[in-house]
Design a protein around this nucleic acid. Sequence first.
DNA 1: GGAGGTCACCTTGACCGCA
DNA 2: TGCGGTCAAGGTGACCTCC
Lengths: 473, 473
Amino acid sequence: MSLKEGQCGVPIENDCGKSEEEMIVDQTLSGDCAPTVEQENGDRLRGGVKAGNDDSNDTDEALDLSFVSHSIPFKKRRLMPVQISNRIPSSAHLSSEKAAKETMMSKEQQSQQSTTHFADSQRMGCGRPGFITCSICNATKYYSHVQRRFGQFSCEPCSKFMKRFLKDPKIFTCMQTGSCQIGKPAGEQEPRGVSVSRCKACWLKICLEKFILDAKTRAVIDKFYSPKFNSEKVGNGKDKNYVSQNLPPPLPLPVRKRKTKSETATYPLASEPFPKRSARHQVALEANMETCATNNNSNTNSISSPTSSPQPSHPTSLKKSLALWRDSSSAEYQSKDLYPDDTLFEPSEECGKCTYCLHRNYMKANVVVVKESCKYKKCILSGLLAGDKEENTLLPPLISLTPGILKTVQVSKSIKSDAQFEGDSPINLVLGNNNKYNNKRNNRILKREWNEAAIGSDSNFLNEILNANSPFL
Amino acid sequence: MSLKEGQCGVPIENDCGKSEEEMIVDQTLSGDCAPTVEQENGDRLRGGVKAGNDDSNDTDEALDLSFVSHSIPFKKRRLMPVQISNRIPSSAHLSSEKAAKETMMSKEQQSQQSTTHFADSQRMGCGRPGFITCSICNATKYYSHVQRRFGQFSCEPCSKFMKRFLKDPKIFTCMQTGSCQIGKPAGEQEPRGVSVSRCKACWLKICLEKFILDAKTRAVIDKFYSPKFNSEKVGNGKDKNYVSQNLPPPLPLPVRKRKTKSETATYPLASEPFPKRSARHQVALEANMETCATNNNSNTNSISSPTSSPQPSHPTSLKKSLALWRDSSSAEYQSKDLYPDDTLFEPSEECGKCTYCLHRNYMKANVVVVKESCKYKKCILSGLLAGDKEENTLLPPLISLTPGILKTVQVSKSIKSDAQFEGDSPINLVLGNNNKYNNKRNNRILKREWNEAAIGSDSNFLNEILNANSPFL
DNA sequence: GGAGGTCACCTTGACCGCA
DNA sequence: TGCGGTCAAGGTGACCTCC
Ligand SMILES: [Zn+2]
Ligand SMILES: [Zn+2]
Ligand SMILES: [Zn+2]
Ligand SMILES: [Zn+2]
């Protein structure tokens, strides 16, 4: 019956509402130094960053960010210590598997039993399997490894969404009024994969409210990447693109790459582009990019004269956006010698020899597709990031598989260059992702086809089904 | 200046609002025989199926569907002939590439020029490249092959969404009020890939309104798969799952598979399941399914007693749903000997020899993953669909690649069974989809990393950027 | 113990073959 | 000329490794 769950920041017995470390977090954040010591009953736990998005949006001042550099690493602090002894437990809690399942069974009773989630001695810590209730989307999920993300207990989708946003931020725009519901209301579950349909702007808004980020990150987000809202939808419909793919220019956000073993090779990137499927494809691609650029630039100042040639010209939105940015930006920005925004990093050739190249790869006709990172490519990237920008040297010629195992055959009348293997050593074959006979994916479709063949064109039977008092209606 | 664009149902000069063929379409549809002869200026074109979803929802009567069997194939009719001479052109139009691009440049002028899209003699027909404005989502896109889908000119995403819904229908539920905006308002563009975020329920609702479907299909959809709306969101929050993965049971919808060459082999499906990643994965999967099933069945009659064991039991939602269906359905349904809903079609072994097996496949360690259909697997499926339900026989042993080309090596401390190739014949290597050094995919991330390294931890520069009068704000 | 990585799974969407 | 197939592109998410 002990409540000592000190490891990993699991809520512990604590009589004071806030610790000194939490005060430090508050200070780092855009002037909101009035922490809510008394939290509402049953409300979400919040870290020091409470509605930091709204706060920083109002200030256009320069932020002195030097004092938040790296002096306070997150893992040194015990985040969010709260007292739970006399409180209704927060939704962002950990609990034992057993207790959490009971909790989900009766949501109404949950608000009555205060500390029973931590009552049994089956201690649930970070890294252990257990249930978790997401601070963002209310989902209660079971994970084999429970851990905090950004200082909050959240589900994997929400944390990954935030992480990917930090890694590659975009400007999301809500097509509705900006108050879209994220997740199921109470404690209900969503099946896997439905979060792709979530409104990204509103999801991100909640993530920014709940997750703990450092001040530098938050300032950049507030300035450049705060989600937009199509507030009235009647204001002549002139909106920015739903999700900005190219704008604004890259800015630093705190996602650190794990250090890889240093290598010696420093081959630069090759500039050979991937072949498109056909020339028609390319024409269509450029045409759509052209139309997108036309519409996206409609609220900036310069619009190019409408081209009326049947062959659409090369897209210019990237160049245009960068030019706009550079003109209005500082000279110091220019001196950084950034990659221009229209640079296209093209992959280099693979060595084909190292274990990186040959670890997990697949074959398409006579093409081996590398799924894992080539050892040399790793060095290429690190060398490039270190400042090496030479681009036009190719790797030495490739080596590859044993000769004689691939032959070109004719499969259909028009497709000629498919592969046929020769050999007799055993190897395991499994289905690929897009194989239509991958029954893991097409299981319901197979069942449907089977049932359809069984039903046939029996319209009487169909009528009976349509009139049946079905439980699914 | 001729308007003769008769082929492919492109809008032609026509003085009467409706043709006889269109009247036939109207008759086939659920009693709505009051077609709107006079359409509003500038409104969308509609086929005979106008709001057929709403109409059929109100009738619980049995539909005599025999007269719409296959007597009126779509391609025999010229759908939706409208007069455009004295009208403002519909949004669902074809136009030449040149004219359409001019149109998109100035959307305000579009409503003034009536017939200029078809003015030049560069005839745009189906199958030709050209611009198209989607009837569903308002997007104007360029395609290398313009064609109708379900009797309407629509973009590929909308038509594919409808087609996939027909192929594998689900019950979508809108998390908002059921009036989500689909696509950009006027004629603005969305970049590729953002339609995954669309509200599927509202998207489907519009598709069902606009696309032309036969009465049988529409009846099944209205009865079983009409999109749900979380209408008030205050009605105690008890909603069905956002998208039904398993309910209701399969029903026939008119998606015909292209006939394949008949084969002779009739190997049945094997029952060997794919291995999960680990036992922990399986535990978590079942736990989440259990919680989903608990919440989803909360509004049906029988709820199983809450299990409180730490190891979650096997999920029962599939069986439960099918049992409910069977009980309330007819005896004729039972006599069809349908596959029970909890049947899991597992893939058979591959032959590894035929051109289907070896056409486009990939390798993972010592596993060759088949991307295209095995010839024998095709036969297996066709044999199964023909009524052969034997399940427990396996294919003959596999053959595979040349010996000696695969060796097991140790890559990291814990991962041991990776592959290394030996050989010296040239082969082309390209990057796979998930390779993090696939620069086609990670281009912006690479640029960001480069810029971040160039900027470094220069807080003055960051402040300058944050205070810059950026055009992106 | 938390941050970052991995990769199977899934949806999409533009093109293409076929009838 | 429209339907169905193909598969690259990219997001998702549960688990995993590393620091
Ligand atoms: Zn969540
Ligand atoms: Zn929203
Ligand atoms: Zn569309
Ligand atoms: Zn909706």
